[in-house]
Design a binder for these strands. Structure first.
Lengths: 244, 244
DNA sequence: CGAACGCTTGAGAAGTATCAATACAAGTGG
DNA sequence: CCACTTGTATTGATACTTCTCAAGCGTTCG
């Protein structure tokens, strides 16, 4: 789907031994490395905690470092020259941010929630990756997944109405948190930026879904899906939207 | 930009020795292989000519083969369940189409012009790529480029007005054919599918640009840029839109 | 010539953005 | 504790853009 979500709410404390805890996770760049290689990679980078709202990658700048997301949630945003912002997607644990060629970043990456990352100097990381083809394979897999998600969202933005987009977002949020009640991972404004709409339109469409009994919103940042079938029908069965 | 274009109008005749001519090109998957490896890869696939309008990859199907585009132009399209079609982008020589994991394709690939491709059975290609890391590196580079283009277009579809999208397409076409006069690489309907608009809106916006003296359209599928600065201003300086 | 196709143009309908007012919760400082 | 500010969400009225439906035009091709 559009957003990748938290695998777990907590992460190991930052520290020298952090890699050994962290690498147990599936889906990280390091996952395919053996213990000694992982230790070598660990020495090249440093672990940092990113506060909510902080930017780790800037649009238009050639990155001097690459980012491996360990925990938390980032939005990838791009702006037009006249200041309109579009969220290109969100990424969570396991994501790799930063170009490996020397070109400027096409987007900025901003933490939506407190996050944990590993930073590597770009050149150093490239040199390491050259010696470890497993990393390249992992990165290729991730890139192809990201490409798929981007193209699915492209279809949504190109051909979907406002209510289709909002419904798709809700299903996306719901997928991330099992159970009956779900939280809005994004504010209304962020949902609008992601869906290519305005805050008002998002709010109105949510209201419409609420009045139609498809969802319920007991609190401002909580919702419940009352009629999942209708919601899915509204979102439209986009190709690949089913269970992966 | 959004579309990748012809590197040259002609390609070597299909034949057993074709690889040796073709591989001289830059930007193909094979480019990084040495002569003997290329010959080995050549034995695994087969070369085919694709007629205009023919589909090589189907949305929703798990691909049994992967496609390496040698020449021509393809559109990548996806459809919603109710039949609305969105072009996700176009790809030209050097492009690689087809998932390497077993999942279903997220889009169809249709030839917009007579094309030349190399087809490889998926499993066979994967096995070969596993033995030749250069291929993985090349594919990663391509995937990241494609991702960038997809995200740029995402910004356009999410935040751009109809006239911005049309102007961006024109600049894209112009970039592909040097000189004063440029041809529309796509029909009005295809431009509409790509820009997420209707045929009528595309036609109307073109008329508006024509009346404003920004472009001239001496023939139906030819245009001239009269006021490049204004056209660029209308398209909006999207990040990375400048000369690569 | 007539049919088919792609493109253009028009009028009205639908959807979304914009501008503006209001509500509500969480701080902040007196 | 209260008044005040700030940020976020909702709601309303209106304007604007784009879509939809429909007709007309030019070219190509049988």
């Amino acid at each position: 789907m559009i957003t990748q979500h938290h695998l777990a709410p907590s992460f190991p404390a930052a520290g020298l031994a952090a890699c050994e805890d962290c690498a147990l996770r599936t889906g990280t760049i390091c996952a395919r490395l053996d213990r000694s290689d992982r230790a070598a990679l660990h020495r090249l980078g440093r672990r940092r905690t990113i506060a909510k709202g902080q930017t780790v990658v800037w649009q238009g700048e050639a990155p001097s470092q690459v980012v491996n997301v360990v925990g938390g949630l980032f939005k990838l945003t791009a702006s037009t020259s006249d200041g309109r912002e579009q969220i290109l997607g969100t990424v969570g644990p396991g994501a790799f941010i930063g170009r490996i060629d020397g070109r400027a970043n096409a987007f900025s990456a901003v933490a939506l929630a407190p996050a944990e990352v590993c930073l590597f100097p770009r050149e150093t990381f490239i040199a390491f990756a050259a010696d470890h083809p497993e990393i390249g394979a992992e990165m290729l897999e991730r890139a192809l997944q990201d490409l798929d998600r981007a193209r699915r969202w492209l279809l949504m933005l190109g051909r979907g109405s406002a209510i289709e987009r909002v419904a798709a977002l809700l299903l996306d949020f719901a997928e991330a948190s099992p159970g009956q009640r779900h939280t809005f991972a994004l504010s209304r404004g962020q949902m609008a930026d992601l869906a290519g709409l305005t805050i008002e339109t998002v709010s109105r469409r949510l209201g419409k879904l609420k009045r139609a009994g498809v969802i319920a919103v007991p609190e401002r940042d909580l919702f419940e899906i009352r009629d999942a079938d209708t919601l899915r029908a509204i979102a439209g069965e986009m190709p690949g939207n089913g269970p992966h």
